[in-house]
Design a binder for these strands. Structure first.
Lengths: 206, 206, 206, 206
DNA sequence: CATGAATGAGTGTTCATTCAT
DNA sequence: TATGAATGAACACTCATTCAT
């Protein structure tokens, strides 16, 4: 099925063009012409692979999310409970250039989603996917007795998601405020706090 | 006698038009014509009160932030330390319709700030203003002995700001996920965690 | 009749504003607002003194021509024939700042006159006025025997008018090419050429 | 196979549209819409061939000058000295409809050049080109002994250029005053005046 | 399929003019 | 009479989209 492969490859090139333009110049600069030029193709080619500009942009967003989810799946392989939670978060946070681009793309769409039902729908779907992935592991941690007794799993899941969105915004707007190290510190301080005390700690308390 | 106009009142009307359009239809729909129509004036009137559209939008953003800061000042009157921190957060979080609009306006600009130096500058300035207001009270709480020993003031300030941005994003994208009550719960759970144990608690531990 | 005086004074102020703007920034910059600002009056005042912008501009043109004609009348007082012709030309050529402004204003309107019947009419009227003034003196010179036999009065008049327009264009576009001295040289070389030979010259030829 | 378009031919059509509009309605009527309509294309097409309106208009001016220069080159083929000068002038003067259009276009820009540095630069460049072409032939005439002893070549060149500009202005403003025949008469009277006397004339004088 | 020329609606902005005060 | 706010048409320009080649 060579045609199919070419089709997907060309679509991917256009999506990557969007990912390069948004971090560099913002989503307002992501015109169809600019995208085509960035991808080194002609203007008209765009319509062969996407029904319209909105679909292309939304696909760029969805694919960015999908990449993160793929990484999460791979990153959690063989892990369970809080270890898996930590692995997921390390893929969701804008810790390196690749993840930062995803944050930049994501944040760029947040503002456009008001009054754009289609975009809101995509956002909601991705939110739920992230919630499901994360809450599954949090529940798992609870089952494994890794969570302190006063930690409610859904609250923790929610706290983690809010953290990702808050830090993503920070990374886009004030990158110097949230260097990699700082992000990991914040994450680990949360994980430490919600962890059930170890036997050693219990002993120390007594 | 010339026709007198309350310049500031007129400017405020236009800013309010922006605040109505953005939550309803998104910032992409905030064209000069739409703003004029929303404010029930003619197209050309914009140029009497703002040099250009960008200045109007940025002013709408800045004024939204300024309103929140005014409320913070009023809300913290007579309060100190963690009580003041809590009062500030209650004004910063999208707890009611008014604050939600501010969050919607703010989030709408986040995406536009990539590749827009002027907007980034505004964002940075507001960030620092918020940081100063909040960190002053957090430091105060530390001085008053209200913070647990292992809490670093700047980390707490940062955590609170990240929380505001994360919850603002949530409120814009998935309003049903962060009802007023939930937001206050999250805030109070943080404040409780960072508080120095009371004497009663200390006694209980012994 | 004080009202009358104020009326004329105010009209003059507006016309002078036009004369300042055109040399400095071109006729495209002569908007009603710019003219009002230059004259230190409000926008609306313009309509009290001129029915519309076109009338104001045309009046600015006509008044510039009128000033030159006044100077010609004064400059030729007591003169006849070629002396008067020379005096007229010295007032018509852009020899100093005042006359240069008139040239700049005049040339600025030339391009606008295409397709503007009203402006063309003004131009034609002024042309005839200039022709009449000049040809009267040229004819006078002929009567006084000041012109060489082979000089046709109307040709000379025409040549002089073409010279004024050509040099005016030069002065507007390439001021350094036609300094005062150069202009007078050109004028005098023409006048010398068309002059009847003096007795001394006649003697020399024999 | 892409739709092929003769880029230069298309640009020429737009320039010709400008050349039709300016003589008919003036340069103020040369809006982008009017130009597009005149060329029977849509508004947006302009931006394919010119970066902006100013560039289109300036190109229209430059091309008009270029056409004249091309004609001058062709018209002077095989000619030298005063014959070449005359040929050049016959192409520069608004002697027929084609040349009149060039004069109308040129004069239309004169007024706009005040306060427009870019346009002034174009004017200056064209002025120098014309000066070079003309002065080369005048110098040649001097070398060939065709000029009377008291004629300074640069003065003659300048006189001829001033004549072209003066007559161009006349042709635009009062076309009936400078019919073809009149223009040629004026030109030839100048050329005759500056010519070195022939042997026959010398003999007659003795 | 790919091209890129063409379209025309829509944008921000400017402007002469009007008119309530 | 003077003010300057208000109007709305017109402007140059950009853009997503279409479509002949």
């Amino acid at each position: 099925m060579p045609k199919r492969v070419d089709m997907e490859a060309r679509r991917a090139e256009l999506l990557e063009a969007v990912w390069r333009i948004i971090p560099r110049s913002g989503i307002a600069a992501a015109t169809t012409r600019a995208i085509a030029r960035e991808a080194s193709v002609s203007n008209g080619v765009l319509s062969h692979y996407f029904p319209d500009k909105d679909s292309l942009l939304i696909e760029a967003l969805r694919t960015a999310y999908a990449r993160a989810h793929t990484r999460m799946r791979e990153g959690t392989r063989g892990l369970v409970g809080l270890d898996a939670v930590r692995a997921i978060m390390l893929e969701a946070l804008p810790l390196d250039e690749t993840r930062l681009v995803e944050a930049q793309v994501g944040v760029s769409f947040w503002g456009l989603s008001l009054g754009n039902e289609r975009l809101l729908e995509v956002m909601r779907t991705e939110w739920e996917r992230f919630w499901d992935v994360l809450s599954f592991r949090v529940d798992e941690a609870r089952s494994l007795g890794q969570l302190a007794d006063d930690v409610r799993p859904d609250d923790l899941t929610h706290e983690l998601i809010v953290l990702v969105e808050g830090i993503s915004a920070q990374a886009v707007l004030y990158p110097s405020r949230v260097p990699t190290k700082r992000q990991v510190e914040i994450l680990d301080s949360i994980l430490k706090r919600v962890s059930a005390p170890t036997q050693a700690e219990n002993a120390a308390l007594e």
